[in-house]
Write a protein that binds this DNA or RNA. Structure first.
Length: 670
RNA sequence: GCCGACCUGGCGCAAUUGGUAGCGCAUCGCACUUGUAAUGCGAGGGUUAGGGGUUCGAGUCCCCUGGUCGGCUCCA
């Protein structure tokens, strides 16, 4: 370390005062290899950044969220360099870190193939091992335009700057324009460079071996459908091979839970090609589960003051003109069926036809039920509930198993309330929703408040109405004590909403219930009730889906439980396995007793060996296996085998029945 | 909708440079009657997603349609 010549600067490192020579950089302060960057006065900087007197400094460890982003961002640069090594004609898009990894977009003539990824990984290895230094260089618009003349997308970013860039924020920050040079440590030559805000790892070598390119995809430049599609390469990078392996194992665990796979394995549902994309059929086992889910929901709704209504799947166009759906969301609806039109020989319409639409939402129907009679304030809150089948023409590329379909069943309720009761009703609804979700086994929530985006014509209705509605929702959400995350611009076109986000067993979050306030439809349909003073008043509508859609909720629960459902939901709750045929009648008799109590039980009469039966029913994830042989029959007992492989032998039949009923009743996962 | 990859008996997979479809599981039959994750033997089942083209010959090559997957966009 060079001795100071006459003056030193004082900085604070993690709050502790430290004196260093003038002109020192972060490498002087942090000798541990795990520190890859630093925060200076809160700003992320390269370790090569020169320290100033009075700087408040913290080291950024590679394993921290900031450190991981820097690692992945640097890996993205190396990927881009590798691509241009192999194909110098490739034009660079953007290359930011994302959750668990990074991507880089390229404009290339030939899309990348999976084989290209292997070659690119090798090329990246070479770059990483060559130990190139990432060196930050401040430039200006004019110079950068000259340097990057052959990179049209970078030029566009230079023109945009700061806050306008969206995803390009990793390239050009709000402050000065910078380029990172990749310097060959042996020669000092610049091997490659990229417009970038940084910071970066000091050296490519620090990326190490724990990275992988994972997939290729297309992505619109700057996320806009109207722009050219670039070819995107996704990768992942971690501080160590163990962490990379752990990440890959998490992906494998998620794949094992994939409801599309489990749906086929457990014979729950399928998507026959003959029906059409995004349209599911539920098989007997899935159907049983659905019925149980729905029945329980019905029971709880009934207890909570909801009334049950039914409405048809199709309607004449007028209803959706009145509701505004055809004006705003016709693209998301199936095209109309034109009925009753009569045309003469000359092709002239003799009788005007009628357009019928499949319904994408239930609300207009429930509104008509409200309007079927004069309403008094005594009728309110009126809570109308329906498992309503709706159809939405989702773009083919967005369909995904049961979680994104074209035909689904909403557990939909519309509540008509007075302004005075709106707040208490919203509170009730939120508590009801959370309580019911807990019964189905989800208990880790946060809330999202979706509000309108100023100036977007998609949102209909008065600003002042939006403001008061939003304020009320926020108040109710905060009272719940749950974490509340803002979602600006995420509102429905007719009003703001609270959505309940649930974390599943492996920490993924799913949007579940939504509670939406609507001041718009009551107005469009001219809804009224008579107030205590005899005046006519407009009710407020609350839209509320609890599962969201039954199909989607079914998929989420399947993934949450990995197919190992709690006994009350399991399609087959108990299976009897005789040690030999002669014990089957003994089990049949126990099965009769259990069936009388409403338990879903089968006795396996197949001529498989007992061991094979255990295998089969374990794979089918039946919560209780009841095994019976001579010892059990002699003592009027049975033996339990559970899915984790444990067993309890010689349990008296009466106790066993009680054990099973208790598990079902308590909604426990056995 | 856009880009790319893919589609072989119910399911999971094989089939050298285009040469005439195999395996495992499942299903069915027979035998076995067994104490906690696969008993043995045998049988049936595919116009290789559908259609068209190239070729003496197509699961293999080309085109169209449908569907699936990964992304982008969208998500009332």
């Amino acid at each position: 370390m060079a001795k100071s010549r006459g003056f030193e600067v004082q900085v604070k490192v993690n709050g502790q005062p430290v004196e260093v020579d003038a002109g020192s950089d972060g490498f002087k302060l942090f000798t541990e290899k795990t520190i890859v960057a630093m925060r200076v006065g809160g700003e992320l900087r390269d370790l090569a950044h020169k320290l100033q007197d009075g700087d408040q400094i913290e080291g950024v460890s590679i394993g921290s969220p900031d450190g991981l982003n820097i690692l992945r961002h640097s890996a993205a640069h190396v990927l881009a360099q590798a691509v241009q090594n192999i194909n110098p004609e490739a034009k660079l898009g953007i290359g930011p870190p994302v959750t668990d990894g990074f991507y880089y977009d390229f404009d290339v003539d030939q899309p990348f193939t999976p084989e290209d990824l292997r070659a690119l990984e090798k090329q990246m290895q070479k770059i990483i091992q060559s130990g190139q230094r990432f060196v930050r260089r401040v430039t200006n618009d004019g110079d950068a335009r000259v340097e990057l003349a052959s990179e049209p997308y970078k030029l566009e970013l230079i023109g945009l700057k700061g806050s306008d860039v969206g995803d390009g924020a990793a390239e050009v920050g709000a402050g000065e324009l910078t380029i990172y040079d990749n310097i060959d440590p042996a020669t000092g030559n610049t091997i490659w460079k990229d417009l970038c805000r940084g910071p970066h790892l000091p050296n490519t070598r620090m990326i190490g071996q724990a990275f992988a390119l994972t997939r290729v995809a297309a992505a619109y430049w700057r996320g806009n459908e109207k722009n050219k599609q670039l070819q995107r390469i996704y990768g992942t990078a971690w501080p160590s091979k163990d962490e990379l392996r752990a990440h890959q194992e998490r992906l494998e665990e998620a794949a094992k839970r994939d409801h599309r796979r489990l749906g086929a394995e457990l014979d729950l549902f399928s998507f026959p090609e003959e029906i059409g994309s995004g349209l599911a059929v539920f098989h007997p086992k899935g159907g049983t589960m659905r019925r149980v889910m729905e029945d329980y929901s019905r029971k709880r709704h009934e207890e909570s003051g909801y009334e049950f209504v039914y409405s048809p799947h199709i309607t004449k166009s007028h209803l959706f003109e009145a509701s505004g759906h055809l004006q705003w969301y016709a693209d998301g609806m199936f095209p109309p069926m034109r009925l009753d039109e009569e045309i003469d020989e000359q092709g002239v319409v003799r009788k005007q036809g009628q357009d019928y639409y499949l319904k994408p939402m239930n609300c207009p129907f429930h509104i008509l039920i409200f309007k079927s009679q004069s309403r008094s304030y005594r009728d309110l809150p009126l809570r109308l509930f329906e498992f309503g089948s709706v159809y939405r023409y989702e773009k083919s590329g967005t369909l995904h198993g049961l979680t994104r379909v074209r035909g689904m069943t909403q557990d939909d309720a519309h509540l008509f309330v007075t302004p005075e009761t709106m707040e208490s009703e919203l509170t009730n609804v939120l508590n009801f929703v959370l309580g019911l979700l807990r019964d189905y086994g989800l208990d880790d929530f946060y809330l999202e408040l979706s509000t309108k985006e100023a100036g977007n014509p998609k949102f209909v209705g008065d600003d002042s109405i939006w403001q008061s509605a939003t304020a009320t929702l926020e108040k109710v959400a905060l009272q719940s004590g749950l974490e509340l995350v803002p979602d600006p611009g995420g509102a429905a076109f007719y009003g703001p909403k609270i959505s309940v986000q649930a974390r599943d067993a492996i920490g993924r979050t799913w949007q579940m219930s939504t509670i939406q306030l609507d001041f718009n439809l009551p107005q469009r349909f001219d809804l009224e009730y008579t107030a205590p003073d005899g005046t006519r008043q407009r009710p407020i509508m609350i839209h509320r889906a609890l599962f969201g859609s039954v199909e989607r909720f079914f998929g989420v629960l399947t993934e949450h439980y990995a197919g190992h459902f709690p006994a009350w939901l399991a399609p087959v709750q108990v299976v009897g396995i005789p040690v030999a045929d002669e014990f089957a009648p003994y089990l049949d008799e126990i099965a009769t007793q259990l069936r009388a109590k409403g338990v879903r039980i089968t006795v396996d009469h197949s001529d498989d060996r007992m061991q094979k039966k255990i295998l089969n029913h374990t794979k089918a994830k039946v919560p209780f296996m009841l095994i019976a042989g001579g010892q059990d029959r002699d003592s009027n007992a049975i033996s339990f085998r559970f899915l984790d492989g444990t067993q309890q032998n010689g349990i008296p039949v009466a106790g066993a029945i009680e054990r099973i009923l208790k598990a079902i009743d308590s909604k426990a996962q056995v």
